[in-house]
Design a protein around this nucleic acid. Sequence first.
DNA 1: TATGAATGAGCATTCATTCAT
DNA 2: AATGAATGAATGCTCATTCAT
Lengths: 184, 184, 184, 184
Amino acid sequence: MNRHELILRAARTCMIEKGFHNASIKNIAACANVSAGLIYRYFENKDSIIEALVSDIVNNMKSHMDDKPRRDENQPLDIFQTSDFFADLQDNIFMLMDIASAATRNPRYKKLVVQAHNALQDDIVRREKQQHPEMDESIIRTRHYVITLLLDGVIVQCGRKGYVIDDELRQMINAIVHKLIHAK
Amino acid sequence: MNRHELILRAARTCMIEKGFHNASIKNIAACANVSAGLIYRYFENKDSIIEALVSDIVNNMKSHMDDKPRRDENQPLDIFQTSDFFADLQDNIFMLMDIASAATRNPRYKKLVVQAHNALQDDIVRREKQQHPEMDESIIRTRHYVITLLLDGVIVQCGRKGYVIDDELRQMINAIVHKLIHAK
Amino acid sequence: MNRHELILRAARTCMIEKGFHNASIKNIAACANVSAGLIYRYFENKDSIIEALVSDIVNNMKSHMDDKPRRDENQPLDIFQTSDFFADLQDNIFMLMDIASAATRNPRYKKLVVQAHNALQDDIVRREKQQHPEMDESIIRTRHYVITLLLDGVIVQCGRKGYVIDDELRQMINAIVHKLIHAK
Amino acid sequence: MNRHELILRAARTCMIEKGFHNASIKNIAACANVSAGLIYRYFENKDSIIEALVSDIVNNMKSHMDDKPRRDENQPLDIFQTSDFFADLQDNIFMLMDIASAATRNPRYKKLVVQAHNALQDDIVRREKQQHPEMDESIIRTRHYVITLLLDGVIVQCGRKGYVIDDELRQMINAIVHKLIHAK
DNA sequence: TATGAATGAGCATTCATTCAT
DNA sequence: AATGAATGAATGCTCATTCAT
């Protein structure tokens, strides 16, 4: 694995473990089995490590959505199976919490997060329109928005509860989204 | 106002303004018009200030709900008016973001937050049962859970977007919750 | 001695010994028998220590010139005795070298040094005019300018030779300045 | 051009531009279109680059004086034209400031500078004696010494004022030296 | 010979915490 | 009880120097 990737993974590990503010460059370096100075050969500063980390998550999400065939429309809905990025989401929860929190105060992070959010939203809406050409875009957008809120809520709850999306939670959300979609 | 309270308020102010990690003890002391050293007579360390702060928010929410009469069932639904703690929520968003994030890593915060969450949920469910004695408890719980998810989602979105619960957002959520409730 | 003064003296000592760039905050702290952190209670940053140091030197020079009675006009000229600041100058040579050098690139230092220089020059010219009311100001200025050049030259030479203004050097300069003054 | 020379020139360029302490090995390497590591094949360390640089300047001065025919004795005196190394001096001022400063602390630099100074002085005196065989050597030495002081003073002033030897400064110095020479 | 990745000591600065007063 | 001077460990970052290739 190349150094860039190596450091990024180490950073991810540290930040998941210790949180955004408490993962020091030295922590990351140690975790990557690399000297502290080397990190600055690959990243301009700590901020740009975060930036890369966020970009990675976003790209990961996008590629998940692009690669996998869409679910059979007749199958019972399972957004955790459907949106495959949920496999990763579990891992990313810690970071996303911190990043969302940091984005509250740091304009650079905020921009990143908002861009990522918009990019994902556009992507999702585009897909839905392909699948349901007859449906009004505003309805799609609204529906997506609700799902987004729910997912963000799930993330927060996961952080709160114990970091696991268990079956109970999974089924509950599915039911809600299902109802939500068919109510419209 | 006693010193304990005074310091806590100052801490709240600072943390809302500067965020969890960037509010220093000195900031708080200055804001409370108190010496930095004195803070350690009332709190063991910085963490326990935060702990107290979280407790405060939780208690605040509880008391809000206890004090205020419930809305007229025939009024159009507005959860931001209904759940009165939303008046505070706006102010607390910054802190809640940080706290949710910190709770991810700090078991003491987590315990606090989870307890609070459960207490609130029980409280709400109890009330709803009073109002809708005929309704199945599991439905009430589910409904509450969804609303919780949505609210957490709103908090995250607010952090992301620009810290304001504007009318558009407000109406959208209201519509969703309304639909949600009547769909069941 | 108060801490401010104490730290300043330590800084002076370190910078004389190790030079401007190589005197670290830790060096200074150790030399002052003080923790590194404490320095920042008394000075905003390293730069402002320098600033204070330069100001000190300038003020020292000025007060030397103000306090002491002027030489007897009939005595043989000895600028090293006359301008009493030369007692200090010896000590200050190292620092002045470094500062002049740093001023080459750092606009803030340059401003300081230039201001100091102008202040001293004005002071000297004013005095000379008192002593020689009949003399043309431009002549006084020119004469002072030459002396300044010579003194700066002496400083550099001292740095080069071995840090001592020995008798040979002293007499030589005196003779030159003497001739210079009487040639006009 | 051989590597040694190439690196040395790059070092000179960087140090003139950024100053003694702020010119990094990497800067120099980049400026020489050479890898950072290679520099250590030609120089033991950063200090010895500087040492070589000082030597170069000194040699340059010497060769300037050797190569060029002396001015016509009847021409009006212009030491900036006369002493041809003044063409370079302008460029070298930055470095000379730093070097003079560094020489204060570093014995190796000091030795170099003192030797150079003596060599130059001897060289100049020898020439002057050829031109003015009737003049007392001590007078020549003294005169040269004063000029040296003035030039060093000029260097310092240049650093202080704004790095340019402008016409005013030039004429003033010339007048002084002229008077100085004819007063004797 | 030449590279540039890698090291690690060092720097200025911050801040939670302690403690003499 | 209250102060705020003092501490010192920790942080992000730089850079001269080394060394495997």
